[in-house]
Design a protein around this nucleic acid. Structure first.
Lengths: 220, 220
DNA sequence: CCTACCGATCGGTAGG
DNA sequence: CCTACCGATCGGTAGG
């Protein structure tokens, strides 16, 4: 993630076509999102991002029009990545309980594989909400609420389907799963303590009542 | 916390004595620490802090000598506040298990009373560790590890003393208590969801095996 | 503790 | 997509 180690976007001799411009934009966004997990949406300046992608500051700026639009595009990219990496694949499971398991498994795998150097994007930028433009703040908090609702909804369906025997309310299960996953994310990234992934699994197994289930290391 | 709503530090006619200077410094530090929980240690600029305290930029700067020293002083102030608010009082309890209860109680009370507008200081600045000077980063991460160790040590002593019957390792109990408290802090501050404090308590009670214990709202 | 400054960088613009 | 700028603000300094 050091500036010098990233390949620059190649200059082309002829005028770029529309699809070239879109490809450039996509490359910028992927790097920007990864970088924002380390330095935040405010700490990621246009100048630094321009250096990192090998464009001039104003050349990069032209792709977005304002820093606020850049931030909104980054949030959208992060949401898309999250859908592709953990929320989406979990939806393909056949039962609510299996979906819940996979939500946890894909999320923790996402963290462990360091898809983003700063771990979960929405956790990383949540701390900045007081400093962000309203539009950006709203989308970040909305995503967080949606994720929590999804966990609770899956837990509720699993209980109703008789798959999950528990004395706890679905919202309680959702909160505790969330706490275990998010704290594992944070401690893994910031204290460089990889044992926390296993500790999170220990708690998840007790919540979902399936202690014999294998950890499941396979990639998806 | 708005700039205009805070009283300025009064100008004095005569040259300030040493104790006046120290009082000014203490006032600056308290406001700076509170502000850092919202905007981070990097987002808190010397200019903004000077406006907020009614000093000139260089007048404020003279108290610390560099931004790094200011950040170190803020971290020390936050650690001192944490000791006074939750870790210290919990140490006065007679048994390890009661200490563990109080660690949770005082921490969640600290969050709920909004002692700092951004909640737990160390959680708030943990996200910035990649952008902070080495000296500052080390002290922040060291504090976090010490807090976790304290939870695990208390859990271990409670188990050895026969106060806490559990199948879990002390480190597992520490991690789960930490996760519940930190996620409650985060959701309380950033999603403005006060139900999470009760959800954290629900999880804590199951971990510490004392479901009949009253919540305990009294201030300390 | 102040005024008056420094070079660097911020987000953003003009014009091509 | 570029060069060449803009005013504002950054951390920090000189000198009192």
């Amino acid at each position: 993630m050091r500036a010098g180690s990233e390949p620059k976007i190649p200059r082309r001799r002829k005028r770029q076509t529309r699809s070239d411009g879109e490809r450039t934009r996509a490359v910028i966004l992927k790097r920007a999102t990864a970088l924002a997990t380390l330095y935040g949406l405010e700490g990621l300046t246009i100048g630094r991002l321009a250096d990192l992608t090998g464009l001039s500051k104003s050349g990069l700026f032209a792709h977005f029009g304002s820093k606020e639009n850049l931030q909104l595009a980054i949030v959208a990219e992060a949401a898309s990545c999250a859908h592709q990496e953990y929320t989406g694949p979990a939806s393909k499971e056949s039962t609510p309980k299996e979906q819940l398991w996979k939500m946890c498994e894909y999320f923790l795998s996402f963290v462990e594989r360091k898809v983003y150097p700063g771990g979960c994007f929405f956790t990383a930028v949540a701390r900045e909400v007081h400093a962000l433009p309203d539009s950006v703040r709203r989308r970040v908090t909305r995503y967080g609420r949606g994720y929590m609702r999804r966990l609770a909804q899956n837990a509720k369906e699993a209980i109703l389907a008789g798959e999950l025997e528990t004395a706890l309310a679905p919202e309680q299960i959702a909160f505790e799963l969330h706490a275990l996953m998010i704290d594992a994310n944070t401690l893994f990234i910031f204290q460089e303590d990889s044992a926390v992934i296993d500790r999170a699994w220990d708690g998840i197994r007790r919540l979902l009542g399936d202690p014999g289930r294998p950890r499941g290391k396979e990639k998806h």
